[in-house]
């Protein structure tokens, strides 16, 4: 057994007696992996404990907590998943008071797969594996080197392949709105492929990921057309940090940037005329 997996198993076994269940990943006989709630009633299920490929488990937590608000749970989180639950906590989607986070540090290989800048946890008290530094994101860097015209051309080539599966929205743990703007005909037309330009679906979604995206890249992973939309989310996250000093998932206490009121000094950083 993989060393990290072995260590994770031991940590889970330590935590499990004190909680109602632990959210992690489970593999079946043929190697298919999905999120699972491990419980002490069924200890044998831990034989199927798995760690890769990752899944949007913050959403699993949300689903379970909605039905069992008081449950005492453990949860295995990678850096991105931890940031995910922190953001969801700030938007009152999950309650972290009863949750034991078990941090799972990503390997270099995993981090490179995700082009991840922060492949480590920051809040989890229990952790498994050695944290590593973030890795470069050559895709985003390559995109930044393009001219405006080249960028337009690039997205046209990518987005003509979009089949409007809504997978990027569906899989995103941060997409928890009860009413979704992407399903509002005022903004996004229905029933036609390829979706007409301008790409309203993707423009609106990019806007809505502002100060929410935690760079887990689940959206890219489930995209049938391999459209690297996280490029945009990532760049915007950088701008939001610059303009409004906000970074997703970093601190539990820091409120997401107030949409309504400019804070001291923000106006100057927006680049708008005075």
């Amino acid at each position: 057994m993989d060393q990290r997996l072995e260590a994770l198993l031991q940590t889970i076994q330590k935590v499990l007696p004190d909680v109602d269940g632990i959210i992690g990943l489970k593999v079946n006989a043929a190697g298919h992996i999905a999120p699972h709630l491990f419980r002490k009633e069924a200890p044998a299920e831990l034989d199927g404990l798995a760690i890769w490929p990752k899944y949007p488990t913050p959403d699993t937590l949300r689903l379970i907590q909605k039905a069992h608000p008081g449950a005492k749970l453990g949860m295995v989180v990678r850096g991105c998943e931890e940031r995910g639950v922190v953001e969801m906590f700030k938007h009152a989607q999950v309650d972290l008071s009863n949750i034991s986070l078990i941090g799972l540090q990503c390997t270099r290989e995993e981090a490179e797969f995700c082009r991840c800048a922060k492949p480590y946890t920051a809040h989890a008290k229990l952790t498994v594996g050695e944290p590593i530094e973030g890795v470069p994101d050559p895709v985003t860097e390559g995109f930044l080197a393009k001219t405006r015209e080249e960028r337009l051309e690039y997205w046209k080539e990518q987005l003509v392949r979009c089949i409007k599966c809504y997978g990027c929205r569906n899989v995103c743990p941060q997409c928890f709105c009860n009413v979704c703007a992407l399903e509002d005909e005022k903004w996004v037309g229905t029933g036609w492929l390829p979706m007409p330009l301008p790409p309203m679906y993707h423009l609106v979604r990019s806007m809505h990921m502002t100060a929410k995206c935690v760079a887990c890249r689940e959206c890219e992973e489930v995209c049938p057309a391999d459209i690297p939309m996280a490029i945009q989310y990532r760049l915007i996250a950088g701008d939001v940090k610059e303009m409004f000093g906000y970074e997703t998932g970093v601190s539990m206490d820091e409120k997401p940037p107030q949409l309504l009121v400019l804070a001291e000094g923000e106006f100057e950083r927006t680049g708008l005329p005075h």
Partner: peptide, 8 residues
């Protein structure tokens, strides 16, 4: 790891 709108 992908699905279309019907599968989802």
């Amino acid at each position: 790891g992908s699905l279309c709108v019907k599968g989802w």
